[in-house]
Design a protein around this nucleic acid. Structure first.
Lengths: 231, 231
DNA sequence: CTCGTAATGTACGAACTGGTGAGTTAACTT
DNA sequence: AAGTTAACTCACCAGTTCGTACATTACGAG
């Protein structure tokens, strides 16, 4: 066997210069890159449609590395999901609306949720994919259980404040309010494609975006004020 | 759902008896059965995850027939989608709420939509799958363009009536109202799995079903009455 | 009854796809 | 300097999976 020198992929520079902190072998970075590329591939093609080979081809790592770090396609997908959810939680926890009056607080929460969904299309696709598979991966993950409680606490506090000052009349449950907000924001992004094809309107287009963003808030506030109840 | 098979299941009997009207070769029925089984398979596994061989194994037909009638996996999927949408349209067109007053009409429409989504889980999964693939199949279909107009007409009439009698204050667009209703009903079913895993509540469970069903109507009515607007 | 054709059964294959065995190299420790 | 091990490369395989070539059979027309 002639051991022809692996001249790398031509991309990685040979550096003896150790002043740079960059390392040619870096497990953390390789793992992170795999997760990033895998997320895009899964989101674009679905779980079964995504190809491990393709994920590998899209980066400077090889397929062997994927299995080295993640053991299987399924565990890779789970890792992608966990990372995506973690990012979401991180953003949500920065939300502080406690200083606002209840109506403004719930409106703001709705709009922030709207913006967040708008900005994380890949995440939404991953969740859709996971739902098609009836959450079989999430259920295996301990990390992801009861990830929702922080938001629920927030909503609960807002609802309590709203009732206390008389602005909210409807007896509403925090989870239900969360469903109202999420469903609207999620659907607008997740179903934009078929909706556009069937109704000839792009829900994600800029001219619709602003109007729909306002709508979420108004919707929830109107409900909480009790205007929808039968009299 | 015609099941005119004399034998419960098992092998088709060799019959020289021609008094029976049943034909052992029946293209229409074979096609229908393929579509039915394929729908379930696609809904359960996603587009790429569905296996043509498995679809064949799940019936009394062979894989060869699938290709004989549908040419390719992709065209089979499209046919499944078209059939599913056709059934939906058929149901929607039977809805008549014109005799009701506007508030009751929109509430009823919302609840009917709710029931409809509740009863057609497979359809919802197919739509989710199609959205993951950015509606690439639907776009190829002439049959499915502007399928939504009937519902929009209905909503428009209700909105006009509501404004006329003063019950609706909000300047609302028919498509937007449809989004409000659909998003809630669709999300409740499509995302029930991940939602259940994260929030520990099954949105499709009977005890929640009834409450959420009432909520859709109240939500939309509250919004249309203008209670959510900033003053 | 015979013949043409639509409908169906059988067997197979080429390309793919998740996963692995085994060796190699870089970086760190002592 | 030598040893240790984590990080990485390369070639390969066994099982799938979509799709097809070809043989066969039932049905209806004439």
């Amino acid at each position: 066997m002639v051991s022809d020198r692996p001249t790398a992929n031509g991309v990685v520079p040979m550096m003896k210069d150790m002043t740079t902190t960059e390392r040619r072998r870096d497990s953390g970075r390789t793992k992170a890159e795999i997760l990033q590329v895998a997320q895009r591939e899964f989101a674009r093609k679905g779980y079964a449609g995504a190809r491990v080979d393709e994920i590998a081809d899209l980066m400077r790592t090889t397929k062997r590395m994927i299995y080295y770090y993640f053991s299987s396609k399924e565990q890779l997908f789970l890792a992608v999901l966990e990372k995506a959810y973690a990012e979401v939680r991180a953003v949500e926890q920065k939300v502080d609306v406690t200083h606002l009056d209840p109506v403004e607080a719930i409106r703001t929460l709705a709009e922030l949720t709207f913006d967040h969904h708008d900005a994380h299309r890949d995440f939404i696709k991953l969740v859709s994919i996971e739902n098609i598979h009836e959450a079989e991966h999430i259920r295996k993950s301990a990390t992801l259980a009861n990830l929702g409680t922080p938001v629920l606490d927030l909503i609960e506090r807002i609802l309590a404040a709203g009732k206390a000052n008389g602005e909210f009349v409807t007896e509403a449950d925090a989870v239900d309010v969360h469903i109202m907000i999420s469903s609207f924001c999620f659907f607008r992004v997740s179903n934009a494609y078929t909706f556009g094809a069937l109704f000839g309107r792009d829900m994600t287009a800029p001219e619709n975006r602003a109007r729909l963003r306002t709508m979420v808030g108004e919707l929830v506030v109107a409900y909480l004020r009790g205007a929808g109840a039968k009299d």
